[in-house]
Amino acid sequence: MTRHLGSGSLVIATHNAGKLKEISALLEPHGLKCLSAGSLGLPEPAETGTTFVENALIKARAAAEASGIVSLADDSGLSVAALDGRPGVYTADWAERQWFEGKPGRDWYMAMGKVEGMLAEQGPDVSRAAWFSCVLAIAWPDGESAVYEGRIDGSLTWPPRGKLGFGYDPVFIPVGKDQTFAELDPAEKHAMSHRADAFAKLVAEQFGR
């Protein structure tokens, strides 16, 4: 039997303000007060896993151990069929500037450009199929954990469109839509995203009783 969350505080193991806002909105109806690892001054652990599940658990467990509070982490990313599933777990790494690319930090336009450049090398008929994956991991301070996985399929477009999302959202068009994630109203995106899929599974198990 899976352990269940109670009411109270939950640490969201992220330093990303956009991700915190999105996750907090999804959990708000369930009476949880979300705190970010960044606001608590918790260090970011090295994401040494080779899968989304491994990295989500690394982050959730590190936050739970450091804070003594039940913690939730997500690991998510974009996978491109024609690139053998890359960037995948290295989605954020592709946005990290190298020493010759300017000041340290993440440049998502550059990351989107890398993906587009690699597709262009394969010619005009290359498949543009892609999907976003999300794994949510809950970790309790005593070491117990639970994992939930979500996914949404779509295709890539170029150039980027929209200003409402973050990360690779401006180049991703979900199946059944003609707008990118960055063009869709946030409420509509949140209702259908890979994170929403994972959260639906989390909510069904954690709060469906």
Rank of each mutant, 00 (worst) to 15 (best):
Met1Asp: 05
Thr2His: 13
Gly6Lys: 15
Ser7Asn: 13
Ser9Phe: 14
Ser9Cys: 14
Ile12Leu: 15
His15Ala: 11
His15Cys: 05
Gly18Cys: 08
Lys21Phe: 09
Leu26Thr: 05
Leu27Ser: 03
Pro29Val: 05
Gly31Asp: 15
Lys33Glu: 15
Cys34Tyr: 10
Cys34Asp: 13
Leu40Pro: 08
Gly41Asn: 13
Glu44Pro: 06
Phe52Ala: 04
Leu57Cys: 10
Lys59Met: 10
Ala60Phe: 14
Ala62Cys: 09
Ala66Gly: 05
Val70His: 01
Leu72Thr: 08
Ala73Cys: 07
Asp74Pro: 03
Ser76Lys: 05
Leu78Thr: 01
Leu78Tyr: 03
Pro87Arg: 02
Pro87Lys: 02
Thr91Ser: 15
Thr91Ile: 04
Trp94Lys: 03
Phe100His: 15
Gly105Gln: 11
Gly105Leu: 09
Arg106Asp: 06
Trp108Cys: 04
Trp108Ala: 06
Met110Trp: 00
Met110Cys: 11
Gly113Tyr: 00
Leu119Val: 05
Glu121Asn: 07
Ser127Lys: 11
Phe132Gly: 13
Asp142Ser: 12
Asp142Ala: 12
Asp142Thr: 13
Ala146Pro: 03
Ala146Cys: 11
Gly150Pro: 03
Arg151Lys: 14
Ser155Lys: 03
Leu156Glu: 00
Thr157Trp: 01
Thr157Cys: 12
Thr157Phe: 01
Pro159Arg: 07
Pro159Tyr: 01
Pro160Ile: 07
Lys163Met: 11
Leu164Lys: 12
Leu164Asn: 13
Gly165Pro: 01
Gly165Leu: 00
Asp169Phe: 00
Val171Leu: 08
Val171Tyr: 00
Val171Ala: 02
Phe172Cys: 00
Phe172Ile: 04
Ile173Val: 15
Ile173Trp: 02
Pro174Trp: 04
Pro174Leu: 11
Pro174Ser: 12
Gly176Trp: 00
Lys177Ile: 07
Gln179Val: 13
Thr180Cys: 04
Phe181Gly: 02
Phe181Glu: 01
Ala182Trp: 00
Ala182Phe: 01
Glu183Cys: 07
His190Val: 09
Asp197Ser: 14
Phe199Trp: 12
Leu202Val: 10
Val203Glu: 15
Gly208Cys: 08
Arg209Tyr: 10
